[in-house]
Simulated assay, not measured.
Amino acid sequence: MVTYILFNKLQAEREARKQYFCSALGVVAPIEEHHPDYVAYISNLPTRQSFLFLCGHNWEVSRFLWLKYPEYHSDITVITSCKWRGFEAQMAQLQEVYFSETDPCGQTRPRNGHSFGFAFDITDSELKFFNDSGGNLLHRIQHSYWKAA
């Protein structure tokens, strides 16, 4: 199973990011679960491991990991957020974690997505993941994001 959590601060990008998720994974119609702070897109792709993609500002992701992670527990967690710092305390509960590529200061710097055909600002890791069609899902994650834990 693959779950993609998109936090409400990115609400203006919601439809474009849903299309990204569906195109990147070859999903036609994911299940949508709407919550007060986020929307979850869930796909029952045939995978041996469960995957959780979190996309939002670092404080939103951090709060989610403290309060909601047990509901969405996964084998592999992939975080796309503005900063790496701030997640250290939650790492103990996560099995395997990948984070979007950052600059030397620990910031994720998105690019203008329109230059690449996306209607939202996209990170290098998201772009690499989208364009990597070789290998299974874990292979694509390992070649697009950096392993944090």
Rank of each mutant, 00 (worst) to 15 (best):
L65V: 11
E60N: 09
T47L: 02
T80H: 07
S23R: 14
E32S: 08
P46H: 14
P36W: 09
P46T: 14
V61F: 01
Y38R: 08
V27Q: 05
P36D: 08
V61R: 00
I31E: 14
L54Q: 12
L52K: 07
Y69E: 13
E32V: 06
C22Y: 14
N44Q: 10
P36M: 04
F51C: 04
I42E: 09
E33C: 00
Q49G: 03
H73R: 11
P30W: 00
S23Q: 14
I31M: 07
P30S: 03
L54W: 12
D75R: 01
L67P: 05
H57M: 14
H73T: 11
T80K: 07
H34I: 12
F51R: 03
S43I: 00
G56R: 03
C82I: 08
F51D: 07
G56A: 08
Y41S: 13
R63P: 05
H57D: 15
H73M: 12
D75T: 03
I79D: 04
P30Q: 04
H57Y: 15
F21D: 09
E33T: 01
F64A: 01
Y72E: 04
L54F: 12
L67H: 14
C55W: 12
P46M: 15
W66D: 14
E60S: 10
S50F: 08
R48M: 02
E60H: 06
W59V: 11
